[in-house]
Structures are given as structure tokens and as C-alpha cells.
Nucleic acid binder design. Structure first.
Length: 315
DNA sequence: GTCCAGGGTGAAA
DNA sequence: TTTCACCCTGGA
């Protein structure tokens, strides 16, 4: 297994770009598939977004990714930062080997191997998934983007090139401000969550080190954070590869492929999946969710998509 | 123009 | 355990 340190040593770094030899990563599925909400596809196919306090573009290149700074600064530090963000220390090889023959994940792994679980900033991730309640990806992007552009710092030439606002800024702007931006009833959850993080009452950095159950309990203390939202934050920003996110689509998949009872509660299903997939639960979850998404689209589009995406799928 | 669903949560029954 | 209100945007 390649460690992040070795990968950084392997980078080809110049002043205006960094090559990350990370193999194939499906940028659309990974950056714009419901894990993160502030990536924008440029006309040249590159994805542009903010990681930390840097604006970058990412484009698929032979054997890896080409990272370019888009904020006028040089590329120093971007290799490490992006390698970290893209989840390079996760056990993808172990996951692939273990589930190669799995009826659901096997075909998914052969069909689209480039899906990764991101390692995002915990505060932005928490904010985003509180916004996700009874929403959809286009709207979440709209909401999170609007808040960022109103309250974040501009760090590049494009209007999207803004840092995510600190919790203090969200706490100060107030509920009505967020409602006026179109956040709806979620506004009444977001301000107290921001206050908890700003005051230190909720320390997200500490939760990165904490055991899964403890971190999950701490998150669900927040109003507006139930089990689903907590598991999103745990998987996508708090280093908890054993978290598993259950919605109605995933529940249907668990029933179809693993005989989990059709009418099982979301809590039961999540517990079952964490037990079954163990340390690979979050990865399994993403591949399963992506498969369900493609299957839904295939139905909507008349079935043309699924044969390409899932060449060895028997159904 | 209307209708409806969208990777939920919390409170009340 | 089940039901329902909560906001509002985009697509059918």
C-alpha cells in the first residue's frame, strides 16, 4: 500500500501545477455526487473549488490528477493538501479485494473504480449536511454557495472562489439572514450549530480522534442533526470509515442485495451495514449509493446507461 | 399555470 | 412506532 508520504514524494511538482499519481479518480462522481457541494465544472472539464484557503482546479491526467492553483499563488503545499482531501490514506485496495465477488459491490467496483470518499473540512461538511434535509443536490449547492459567497473571503478571481465562512460568521448573521438566502427551516438549526462550534462547546477536531459512537452522539446532540446527517459528517470529514448512511434508496439496495428486511427501520439497517461492512462501510456506502443513482437514471433515461456503467451486472 | 419530490429532523400522538 | 409540519426550488 502506498502511504501519503510516499505519494507526496512521487509528485511531479512545478510552480504552476502538481501531479498526483493516485490512479484513476472519477471526479464527477466523487466531487459532484453528493459528498461536497462547492465544486464547479469548468468548460475544459476541470473541477474548480476551494480546499482550505486555496483555490484549485483538478483535472484527470494519465495515471493521476493534475492540480493547478487558481488563486495566483504557486503550487507549494497543494499536493499534500489535495492528497489528504481526496482520501488517499483510505484502504481502497483492501476494500476492492474484499468485495470483488460481492453481488452488489463487485460489479460496481468493476464499473466505476474511481469513486473516493472525501476528507473535507468538518465545519463546512456539518453545515452542508444540515442543509441537505429534505433537499436535493442542486438546491444544496445553491444554498451552501450563496452563504459562502455572502460571508466567506474572496480568495480568487471567480465569484465562487471564497473560503467557507467561519462558524462565528454564521452565528452572527442570524436565522433571518439565512432564511432570506433561501435556506428555509434549516436556518433555525444552522445558527445554534454555528454557535456550538464557535464557542468550543462542540469541538470538531476532537471528534476526529474520538471513537465513532462518541463522535456520533456528540453530533446528534445538535438540533437538526439526526443519524443520517451525523453519518454523512462522520464519513466525509471526521475520519470514520465505519459510518454508513441510510436513506430510502440505500435501504432498498440493502433489501435487494443483502436480504435486509424491506421494512427494516433506518437505524436497524445502518447498524446491520456497519456490522457487515466494518471498516469499509463508508466506501461500500458510496459505491452502493452511486450504483442506485445510476440505476435510477437508467430507468429515467430508458435503460441505456446501465449497460455501460455495469457491464457485468446480471440483472 | 399546478403539482410534486427532494441522500431528514423533531415533536406530538 | 407512526405521522406531520417545516421551507422552497426545479422539473414534469
Amino acid at each position: 500500500m502506498i502511504t501519503p508520504e510516499k505519494q507526496v514524494l512521487n509528485e511531479l511538482t512545478t510552480a504552476d501545477s502538481v501531479f498526483l499519481p493516485v490512479g484513476f479518480i472519477d471526479l464527477e462522481a466523487t466531487l459532484d455526487g453528493g459528498q461536497a457541494f462547492r465544486w464547479w465544472r469548468q468548460q475544459d472539464g476541470a473541477y474548480r473549488g476551494v480546499v482550505g484557503r486555496r483555490v484549485v482546479t483538478i483535472i484527470e491526467a494519465d495515471g493521476g490528477l493534475l492540480i493547478r492553483p487558481a488563486d495566483g499563488k504557486d503550487s507549494s503545499g497543494l499536493g499534500r493538501s489535495l492528497s489528504d482531501y481526496l482520501g488517499q490514506d483510505q484502504d481502497l485496495d483492501g476494500f476492492r479485494a474484499r468485495f470483488a465477488d460481492d453481488p452488489c459491490l463487485g460489479p460496481a467496483l468493476r464499473g466505476y473504480s474511481g469513486l473516493r470518499v472525501l476528507r473535507q473540512d468538518p465545519w463546512e461538511c456539518l453545515f452542508s449536511f444540515i442543509c441537505s434535509s429534505t433537499s436535493n443536490i442542486p438546491r444544496i449547492k445553491l444554498n451552501v454557495g450563496a452563504v459562502a459567497e455572502m460571508l466567506g473571503f474572496l480568495i480568487g478571481p471567480d465569484s465562487h472562489d471564497v473560503t467557507f465562512p467561519e462558524p462565528e460568521a454564521i452565528a452572527e448573521c442570524g436565522e433571518q439572514f439565512l432564511r432570506d438566502l433561501g435556506l428555509g427551516f434549516r436556518a433555525k438549526y444552522l445558527v445554534p450549530a454555528a454557535e456550538a462550534v464557535a464557542s468550543g462547546e462542540l469541538n470538531l477536531s476532537v471528534l476526529r480522534e474520538a471513537p465513532y459512537a462518541e463522535a456520533r452522539n456528540a453530533l446528534t446532540e445538535l438540533h437538526g442533526v439526526g443519524e443520517k446527517v451525523a453519518d454523512c459528517v462522520l464519513a466525509f470529514s471526521l475520519d470514520k470509515p465505519e459510518s454508513f448512511i441510510v436513506d430510502r434508496h440505500i435501504l432498498r439496495a440493502l433489501h435487494r442485495w443483502y436480504d435486509v428486511p424491506e421494512k427494516a427501520s433506518l437505524t436497524y439497517a445502518a447498524n446491520w451495514a456497519r456490522d457487515y461492512f466494518g471498516e469499509h462501510a463508508a466506501l461500500a456506502n458510496q459505491y452502493m449509493f452511486h450504483r442506485e443513482r445510476l440505476a435510477r437514471r437508467a430507468t429515467e433515461w430508458g435503460g441505456a446507461h446501465i449497460s455501460r456503467a455495469l457491464p457485468e451486472d446480471g440483472r
